[in-house]
Nucleic acid binder design. Structure first.
Length: 689
DNA sequence: GGGCCCGCAGGG
DNA sequence: CCCTGCGGGCCC
């Protein structure tokens, strides 16, 4: 990297490094890319208009082709100088008036990510080989300048050097304002470089795929950042969809035992946090946003630490929901032996242990508890109507007790009162909750083990600030943050490399190459002047319907009449009438899609090959086992069964249900038979692999 | 709509 | 490692 160009320097801690004066806020111009502040008067070239000022990029970030700065690469670190084409492309993009800022940003990112991943002579298979071969070098170039590891949350300085967000923040907190690598000035804070995130993820996957060539699939630790954004199925999962899915990436940086709302500071990618009223299709997604970590269990917590969240989804019929307050039933007391996961029938008393104790602890301490309502709760008027789970905000447990439930067994009961700064999803109020008096609870009369908070609550209303906040410091986290980079963080999930790579690639194809009308992968793609992609047929179809308008005649009949001036892009309403007259397939895009699909097919083949090997091995093991069993049988009862009717054969083919049922019956006496059966099956699978 | 079954996650 | 869990898909 060359010497610093001293004729252009930004402000350091509010003081201009050129004139050593502290400019007023009006005189400071932030860079559109790195957000570093610059003194307008000291700039050699100043923006002329307000619009230019808004889009202004500092000399460090602006792609100045004739200076050393041209080597600055937004993706970072490579500085190979061969990016003239890229700069020209970005300039052309910026000049394109038909694009919105958002589209420009997206395209810019796409360009940069391609550059990050592909060698400069991006010619098909050859470059692919180079990429795999040079993957280590590529990954090395992404490394954090300070810790020399691959950044967990990468940020890139204007001078093009990469850091982990943690390392960078720590470095800046020491008062340092020069890049640790090249001593160029650096801004006090940086945003996550999403392009680099994707590049690292992609390179990681490629690396693993290369390393895994011809090898047997193994269970390995799957780090958070390597997971797809959506829930995915591991090798073992047999059913489609999310029935047996593994969790996708966790998006927030809260610890697993984080109490209270999830605010913007824990949401580095969107900087928004999780707002009240946010919905998800599945509990798994709710988990990914850190609101409720358990996928099945209704209470998330630790008996010695407290409970962080609960879900109301109708699992216990004793629940009583009044919106701003509700009575929640503890967990347990049901027979879940065998392979049952849910069962409405109670068979024993609930105790204040495990999760029930965690809730009681939150009650005693006055901790904030996040509450999620599911559409599955049918008896509550406050449950969401659509098939979703919804985050309803913070509640506090005011009392808990035990009483006889409707099924005759004792259940733990908790009185939850809402105490959130945002209004509930069902209320027309614009403000959050104010402290409210406790409701009269009839059932407290016959209740036992009543617990009420003695001291003041940790989460309480501040009359001066007029909001709910931590009056006492929140409990210290005892569990790690996902994605923090500790080795033991990854969860052991058995996934073949090709399989994992395919999942991520499918996601990417859907995101990048999906038609905005049919939401499937583009076929014969056309790109509108406003840069939106559609299948040719979809676009034609959309306007075939719009060309005519239904109109009532004076006789009251409907007739079709051509409609003018509605030839607008279905997405952004730009007039595309001219474009529609001569629809041309975007061949570049088509080639890119074909490329991706070819890769996908290769991966599928790879996967199948792996599966065949696995099946063969499994067969061999099965045969071995069968022989030994047969031998054993023969030694006990030498009379072999020679004939089987088709019916009998069928019965033998699907024995699981009956056998499982008998296990369950046994479990009524001794709850271990079914579990043991399941474990032995599991361990057998492990052996097979 | 209910029962059954499954894999996953997490506490202890 | 064992146990538990207010999910979700599929079949009946």
């Amino acid at each position: 990297m060359a010497d610093v160009d001293v004729s252009v320097l930004p402000c350091n801690d509010g003081i201009c490094m050129m004139c050593n004066q502290m400019p007023s806020p009006e005189e400071i111009l932030p860079c559109n890319t790195c957000t570093s502040p610059w003194h307008v008067s000291c700039l050699s070239v100043r923006p002329d208009t307000v619009a230019e000022a808004l889009d202004w990029e500092c000399p460090d970030c602006a792609p100045a082709a004739d200076s050393e700065q041209a080597a600055v690469n937004p993706v970072g670190g490579r500085g190979d100088g061969g990016d003239d084409g890229l700069i020209a492309a970005i300039k052309a993009l910026e000049a394109d008036e038909s694009l919105t800022e958002r589209e420009k940003a997206r395209k810019r990112q796409a360009l940069m990510s391609k550059t990050a991943l592909l060698p400069s002579d991006s010619d098909g298979a050859d470059s692919e080989k180079k990429m795999n071969g040079g993957n280590d070098a590529l990954l090395r170039s992404f490394c954090c300048t300070i810790c020399m590891h691959l950044p967990e949350r990468p940020v890139t300085t204007p001078c093009g050097h990469n850091f982990c967000l943690k390392c960078y923040d720590r470095y800046v907190a020491q008062g340092k304002r020069q890049c640790a690598n090249c001593r160029q000035p650096i801004p006090p804070s940086l945003r996550i470089n999403e392009v680099l995130v994707r590049a690292i993820r992609r390179a990681n996957v490629d690396k693993r795929a290369t390393a895994g060539d011809g090898q047997r699939p193994v269970a390995h630790y799957l780090h958070n950042q390597d997971r797809p954004d959506k829930a995915f199925r591991s090798e073992r999962a047999k059913k489609a969809g999310n029935a047996n899915a593994s969790s996708g990436r966790i998006f927030v940086t809260t610890a697993k035992d984080h109490f209270g709302p999830i605010t913007a500071e824990y949401d580095p990618e969107r900087n928004e946090g999780v707002l009240v009223g946010r919905t998800w299709q599945y509990r798994m997604e709710c988990r990914q946003w850190g609101i409720h970590r358990s996928v099945v269990a209704g209470i998330s917590g630790q008996c010695r630490h407290g409970a962080q969240s609960v879900v109301l989804s109708g699992g216990y019929e004793d629940d009583e929901d009044h919106g701003e307050w509700f009575i929640y039933t503890g967990s347990g007391g049901k027979d879940l032996s065998g392979n049952k996961r849910t069962n409405k029938e109670h068979s024993k008393d609930q105790e204040f242990t495990h999760m029930n104790e965690a809730l009681r602890l939150s009650c005693r301490m006055g901790y904030p508890v996040r509450v999620v309502r599911s559409h599955k709760e049918k008896r509550s008027s406050y449950a969401p109507r659509e098939a979703v789970v919804r985050y309803d905000g913070i509640y506090r447990i005011e009392k808990c007790w035990r009483k006889k439930g409707t099924q005759g067994f004792k259940v733990c009961r908790y009185l939850f009162m809402r105490c959130d700064n945002e209004p509930a999803p069902w209320t027309c109020d614009v403000h959050g909750d104010r402290p409210r008096p406790l409701p009269f609870i009839k059932e407290l009369k016959g209740a036992t083990d009543i617990t009420e908070r003695k001291g003041s609550p940790s989460w309480d209303y501040d009359e001066e600030k007029e909001c709910w906040l931590w009056k006492k410091p929140p409990p210290l986290s005892k569990q790690p943050v996902e994605d923090s980079g500790d080795a033991e963080e990854g969860k052991k999930v058995k996934v073949k490399r090709a399989y994992m790579q395919r999942q991520i690639m499918e996601e990417e194809i859907q995101r990048e190459f999906g038609c905005h009308i049919c939401h499937k992968v583009l076929t014969s793609p056309v790109t509108t002047p406003c840069a939106h992609n559609f299948c040719k047929a979809c676009l034609e179809g959309a306007f075939a319907g719009l060309t005519y308008i239904k109109e009532r005649t004076c006789h009251g009949r409907r007739t079709l009449r051509p409609q003018k001036n509605v030839m607008n892009c279905p997405l952004c309403s730009t007039d595309i009438a001219e474009f529609l007259q001569n629809l041309k397939v975007n061949t570049d895009l088509m080639n890119a899609i074909e490329d991706m699909q070819q890769k996908l097919e290769d991966l599928e083949e790879e996967e199948e090959a792996e599966k065949e090997v696995e099946d063969q091995e499994q067969e061999e093991i099965d045969n071995d086992g069968k022989e030994t069993v047969d031998e054993a049988k023969e030694s006990i009862s030498p009379a072999p069964q020679t004939e089987t009717t088709p019916q009998e054969a069928c019965e033998q083919k699907k024995p699981t249900r009956k056998r499982k049922k008998s296990n369950n019956a046994e479990n009524a006496v001794d709850g271990h038979a079914g579990v043991t059966a399941r474990r032995s099956k599991k361990s057998k699978m492990a052996v097979a692999v």
